[in-house]
Design a protein around this nucleic acid. Structure first.
Lengths: 206, 206, 206, 206
DNA sequence: GATGAATGAGACTTCATTCAT
DNA sequence: CATGAATGAAGTCTCATTCAT
């Protein structure tokens, strides 16, 4: 069918635009990225971009949501490999970290640019942060339920874990290459564990 | 001396511009704040603003530095009241929190807007974050030296503490009023303490 | 014949497009009407519209000509019912008025939008105006020839009659509902009659 | 004072922009006129235009109002020279005509472009038309009151007079040079007079 | 014949910055 | 020193038109 072909081509073009946008946004930042440049980078015309997306803002939002969803998937896959609730939460953090370590552009977009891109995004970003904090929290709750850790305020713990990770990633994103991002986590991990009352068990690495 | 008078008048105007800029930036965000509006809010003309500052960017940077310095002062004053190194670090965090709780505009500027305002600021922000992380770290180092806590990676701990705090403040800034910011810290504090191996001692609030 | 079927189908679609265009043009005005919207309203695709018409301009021109021709037909039918040349001219005006009263959209298109839609249309509109003025003129000429009215400049009279009518209709189109358009004519008629030296004779209909 | 100088310079520039806009609008029509071209023609920058006017629409509206006001002034001056109310109305029409005859650009703008420039202007144009129709009407009312003419529907008469004039001017604007606009009025005048029951008195021309 | 994705020229507008007064 | 008019580069977005499928 012609229709199907066109649809799939359209979807391919959408993805090309999104991919190009990711590159441009993380190269220039949201405010300094121009739709013109995104169009150029995706081998499309400006009009083409506007055919597929209502505007620059929408592109960024798509990207944000797409990334958040990919990230969540990765985290969930990583957690599936473990039974221990603490190990699960731990695995989730590590998965997120791995992903960002591989795609610094993504990390920059996600951790840095999104905040200052305007009120609209801050709200959405806060939600995304909260989503991840909640994932952690739920597994800490499980851990409490199973008696693995003592009862604590898991909500604040989830947020704190995420915040600590965030700070580490952000630093790594902004300052040059420095060290491997995973190494930072290796140092961070015992801290997090202790914070919820888990005695250190240096079982794992990557 | 006329000179002296003029100097002080000039300084007064500078401050008026900075104060106005703070209001405008935190109302509109960096990118949506216009020099025109800052001029209007500070009862000056656009030309006047440009006489005192090289440009919009410089105003923001001034503000950032001024705020960081005020914050550091507050933190140091708070720490001076304590001997115990852990208590010092703790007091510093609380002082920062108090300040932000009183001036949400400042918090927004400092924690949210600055990140996405452009490459220039991200670098500076990372430095400021690092400064605060270092303050914490130094006192944790003291604590280790005094045998109050066991040896740990204090650098990562400083960053983690700051990151956790950051996340909490950011959430509070972006989402509406919700709860008192200080309450969040009350919940956060035991976590931080445990993370460096200090048994909970619920001594204080303020 | 397949050919015949296809031809008639093509013509049907043409008409559907024209009808849709009339609605859109009179809703949005020429410049704010988009081909996309016309396509949507005529249950066709943009490509379809461009298959049947060379462009937006041509659609508008078609509409203009179609309307002018319909209007002329109505006027001629109305005139056929009368012998008196003055009555004929009178009937023509009334017929035009009736038509517009029923189709305000048409009136708006014809009297208002067409003028400002661009140079191309102004020329054509002037011609159409002239056509109607000429119809009136011819019957005034007949009246002069038959001695019903005294010799006057019938050309200018035709134009003036049309102009007066035009102003009345335009007002009615732009300002809301107000009164019945026909009532305005009832008031206008004696004026027109007197202007060519015909004593008032309130013979007529509706 | 610097202030005064700047103000007067600003006003001069405003006028330059308005004058340039008049030229461009009447050369290209409202929709095809670009702010760029207006800026160029007024030896300003695009930004300069936007400093003085909120946008293209506002420029056009200014022009419309300015012209309407000038026209009214001319008409009133012309009427001041006469006592007879009919002569006054007559003089007003002639004054309007003279003005347009001298400034065809103005006429085009006023009679043709304004209508199709968008809904906003149509409303305002209808008002302006009504203003002029009212001026005529008031003097016809005077004439009735003084017993110069028999009682008639002066409101519709005012509108009809204006409409007739409008048609004549519009034709003259759109079709090339042809004849002198004033000659058209000479032919139109007896018609108008008769229409309100005034016997012809070919007293004047200009 | 129909479809709708793609194009690209061009429109309006904003604003940081400069500079004559 | 202050003012605010002026600049001009850059940005987002619209839409008539084309054309591969």
């Amino acid at each position: 069918m012609t229709e199907v072909l066109q649809q799939s081509r359209a979807r391919a073009r959408q993805r090309r635009i999104l991919d190009a946008a990711l590159r441009v946004f993380s190269r220039k930042g949201y405010r300094d990225a121009s739709v013109d440049e995104i169009a150029g980078e995706s081998a499309t015309s400006k009009g083409g971009v506007y055919f597929h997306f209502p505007g620059k803002e929408a592109i960024f939002l798509h990207l944000l949501n797409r990334t958040a969803s990919q990230l969540r998937t990765k985290a969930e896959e990583a957690m599936a490999a473990h039974d221990d609730p603490i190990a699960k939460a731990d695995a989730a953090l590590l998965a997120v970290l791995h992903t960002f370590a591989k795609h610094r552009a993504l990390a920059r977009l996600f951790m840095v640019e999104a905040m200052g891109a305007g009120r609209e995004f801050q709200q959405r970003m806060a939600e995304i942060h909260a989503e991840f904090a909640t994932i952690i929290r739920e597994h800490l709750d499980d851990a409490v339920a199973q008696g693995v850790i003592a009862p604590i305020d898991t909500e604040i713990a989830g947020r704190a874990w995420f915040g600590a990770l965030n700070e580490v990633i952000t630093n790594w994103v902004i300052l040059g290459e420095q060290e491997r991002l995973e190494d930072a986590y290796a140092a961070l991990r015992p801290l997090l564990m202790r914070s919820v009352g888990v005695a250190d068990s240096q079982e794992r690495v990557s």
